[in-house]
Amino acid sequence: MTTLIEARGLAKSFDTRAVLSDVAIAVAQGEIVTLIGPNGAGKTVLLRILLGLEAADAGTVERKPGLTIGYMPQKIEIDANLPLSVARFVGLAGSYTKPQIAEMLAETGIAARLEAPIQALSGGEFQRALLARALLRQPQLLVLDEPAQGVDVTGQEALYDLLARVVARHGCGVLLVSHDLHLVMARADRVVCLNGHVCCTGKPAALGNDPAFAALFGARGAASVAVYRHNHDHEHAVCADPAHDHRHG
């Protein structure tokens, strides 16, 4: 598998507060990597560094040459004074024809909203518009920051189903940040737990047993992961690292 993006030894602090230290992460072609961690764990900062929106204090980010990235930021607000149709919003991704845009909106399930003002979309529809804009670029890597934010519970499941379908169809690598442990973990190839540093990483099924994971997300978090372990007949401790202190305040 080709590595699309790989970061090593990333460090970042704001003033004196270290937000990231010695973080390594990589995403390969066709792989779904989910980044989880409590609030303030540095997930968004890490994404911003990987996307080139922010500079790290130390460390390296290597991208496959010519890598195209589709980015779906957290729920965004668009000024009510800006008259912008959904088609125009999606088309801002680059130079695309109306049929290309319409086709992509059909794929993400909001073809009927093509001419609607972007501000009139519901939370779920807006996320689908963002996904359409990201996919229009034919990305090799999709970076999704809390894609289900602002989406109601029934919509979340549908959105993740859609994500799984388009990722399979387009064959792109995915880096996903999420809070929704139980929805996300089942579909990830690899999960990276972040809390300023990489606490643990591995297949979702294995993480439920990891003491570091339990320390971060509590027994309920670990249990919600365990639901998805039923079809695995073996487990491996991914980051049983006795030397590492995993108590987080």
């Binding site: 996307l51 929106l53 980015y71 930021p73 668009i78 912008l84 801002l92 680059g94 804009r133 970076v143």
Partner: peptide, 10 residues
């Protein structure tokens, strides 16, 4: 104007 980060990534 619509979204600076998104535009930058694009």
């Amino acid at each position: 104007t619509v979204h600076a980060d998104l535009a930058a990534v694009e």
